[in-house]
Design a binder for these strands. Sequence first.
DNA 1: CGTGCCCTTGAAGATCTTCAAACGCAGTGG
DNA 2: CCACTGCGTTTGAAGATCTTCAAGGGCACG
Lengths: 232, 232
Amino acid sequence: MDAAAPLLVAASDFFRGLSPAACRDVTERARERRFARRAVLLRESESEPALFLLVAGRVKLGKLGSNGQEVILQLLGAGDVFGGVAALAGGPSPATVQAVEAGRALVWDRPVLRELVARYPEIAVNGVRIAAARMQEIQERFRELSTERVAQRIARTLLRLARQAGRRVEGGVLLDLPLPRRDLAEMTGTTLYTVSRTLSEWSERGLLETRRGRLLLRAPHALVAIAEDLGG
Amino acid sequence: MDAAAPLLVAASDFFRGLSPAACRDVTERARERRFARRAVLLRESESEPALFLLVAGRVKLGKLGSNGQEVILQLLGAGDVFGGVAALAGGPSPATVQAVEAGRALVWDRPVLRELVARYPEIAVNGVRIAAARMQEIQERFRELSTERVAQRIARTLLRLARQAGRRVEGGVLLDLPLPRRDLAEMTGTTLYTVSRTLSEWSERGLLETRRGRLLLRAPHALVAIAEDLGG
DNA sequence: CGTGCCCTTGAAGATCTTCAAACGCAGTGG
DNA sequence: CCACTGCGTTTGAAGATCTTCAAGGGCACG
């Protein structure tokens, strides 16, 4: 176990507000798991999901349709948690979680988590808070998917990614994560072809460019205009 | 206050598992609110949402787009709760709630709810459970909206409504609630025109009919086939 | 140097939206 | 009692948007 682990635990949404002693206790009950790119950490069918705290790497949280089509609900990175709400609630995992970048995570299995919640009830309240925040976001995205056009949704998604994984560099904001067209399509409810076309057009207009497989947003303000349908 | 109120409270998802004494306590702290059709019970802008337990009537839980377009996230009826997760979490209301049928509700304002949670921590756990269930549903609908065609989504929505508000009558299942084409469109992410056309077609094929403003599903199995894209 | 993966682009066409017009029905007021 | 009015619904026609299928290109990696 990493020596810095208790700090990570203390900083995570799920264990926020716990005393340092409690955080050490919580940390000791975790097991560590390393995972490779494309590894599946959680399946929808999983009846007893565990709580994961991402230490390093990135994962996508998604859902598979009966015909094989996938939908990406969220991308998560270091410091983010997943599986916790389902683990607390007692239901099955609502989504499949797959790594898009290798990394490692701290894991608390359901029985362990239950013990911890009994000992530190603040955890349940934090769980509600996290659930509420996720709900906010997915409802907002539901609205977007329902009422906005593809270009708007792609622009919004890029801006969201910029906030959570963007690095300011000279010339714009770099989305420093692997982001194949296909994934972007599954995040926005469209096809990889439409994404490709849209990005090509924006690229020609100088709004962004592709650098070594990463997207560089050169004109985020223009993307905002597109997202808000102000005539971009 | 209604004499049956403690029973309703005990049966609600939010207060499930509380002792009878606790339920009486909880019930006493509620205030009652009657509302007319079209009344707005909660706004998105609301920073301090309360917990509502519907005693009678129906409401729609929705979100408004910047351009005035509305999206309906859920329809709720007697026995359902809303606002509770946001109230517990401390954030703003994630959605607007408007009555589609007059009714009444028990209401716990945020400070009251906080006290109750402190006294009965099971409430927080129930909150997580409710949040998880809602999350399940909205994620599933997100996937549908993302990957399925309009007819499939309309069929699914009708079937969902049949489960939660359907009455078996001779000749089929009656959706005993006001359900204008417009609302159905806002539930499925399409326009009222497309809904009208689709229902007309199904009506001609004998799958359903409109009776005094209510929908009667004559062949739910056929709707299932359409929803699952089995060639309906 | 191939092989596979991802990306791009064109062309055709399905699906769905938009706009316009007309209908039926319930409630209102003359 | 009947016309009037407003709301929800239906239907047609036109066309925008997006998907689908097909083909080819580039790049990394073995």
